[in-house]
């Protein structure tokens, strides 16, 4: 097969594609339902929100839900933008730091040999399986002892180590050929050099996947806001949206909740569209065989 660059879609629509398309299309429609539903739901006027049987598509789209949402948040004293800012800071810092730590740790655990390496990996595997809820109170005690309550660090630190991401990235680093690394050593590269110039470019797809995983965890996380933050102005957008949905569990609240859901959903969409090229296409040409 010829090199096709980063274009994944073939230009022509061949006969051989019809078979697979026929198989996949119903599934695609099936999976697209919730997305369509969320988008439509946010624009529904009040009478359609409560229509029975519930309608899937919006008939008379309005922006009422969004204006209501802004109105409610204005009344609460803390502007919505504050929560959005909080969430963005938390998410960006967490993703950045945790990716650096994860890739460094994965490189070290996979390619550098020292005593205790396997033990560390096993600890990680145990950590994957343990229920996070169970450790929330000890975690709170640590956060309180470090004096981090009501700070951004309280949001960031507990989410920094994502064992699943480390597991995933390590699987990919394992597949980087040892020969390549040895060649780099012979050419005089330092370990950090190898990490930066060799490992990182080669495991880009894994990094992109891990970034999505971490993002998803951070973005939808309410635990940190719930447990470690008392100050309302330091809580995250997710927490705020959720409390809106719960507090306004009235007739008007439904519309607000729908709008809030759409707002929560859009960053995910953007991030995935940005990263998906990386996730899929670098692998084939990165030299990992």
């Amino acid at each position: 097969m010829a090199y096709r660059g980063s274009k994944i879609d073939p230009k022509k629509m061949g006969k051989d594609q019809v078979k697979i398309l026929l198989l996949i299309l119903p599934l695609v429609i099936f999976m697209a339902l919730p997305i369509v539903y969320i988008i439509n739901h946010a624009f529904k006027p009040m009478d359609e929100l409560f229509a029975f049987p519930p309608t899937f598509f919006v008939r008379r789209p309005t922006l009422d839900n969004f204006t209501n949402l802004i109105k409610v948040s204005r009344n609460s004293g803390i502007p919505l933008s504050r929560y959005i800012f909080n969430s963005f800071v938390i998410t960006l810092v967490t993703i950045g730091l945790s990716l650096v730590f994860t890739t460094l740790a994965a490189f070290s655990l996979s390619k550098l040999k020292y005593r205790g390496r396997n033990m560390l990996m096993q600890i990680n595997q145990i950590a994957i399986m343990f229920v996070a809820t169970a450790v929330s109170i000890p975690r709170y005690l640590i956060i309180a002892k470090l004096g981090l309550v009501d700070s951004y660090l309280a949001h960031i630190l507990p989410l920094l180590s994502v064992p699943v991401a480390l597991f995933l990235v390590k699987q990919f680093v394992d597949q980087v050929p040892q020969v390549l690394i040895e060649a780099a050593y012979i050419d005089g590269a330092s370990d950090f050099h190898i990490y930066r110039k060799l490992i990182i470019p080669m495991i880009k797809p894994a990094i992109a996947t891990a970034a999505i995983l971490v993002f998803q965890q951070v973005w939808t996380n309410m635990e940190t806001s719930n447990f470690y933050i008392n100050d309302d102005s330091m809580k995250s957008l997710t927490f705020y949206m959720n409390s809106l949905t719960n507090a306004n569990n009235t007739v008007a609240g439904q519309g607000i909740a729908a709008a809030a859901t759409l707002i929560m959903f859009i960053p995910n969409l953007v991030l995935f569209i940005l990263l998906q090229k990386n996730v899929m296409n670098t692998m084939a040409h990165s030299g990992i065989k």
Partner: peptide, 23 residues
């Protein structure tokens, strides 16, 4: 290699001790 390996993994170890093992 062992020393750099431990340096590389140390942020993760500190995080793990604080937020995984101790809890």
């Amino acid at each position: 290699k062992a020393i750099t390996g431990l340096i590389f993994v140390s942020p993760w170890i500190i995080g793990a001790i604080l937020f995984l093992i101790y809890p």
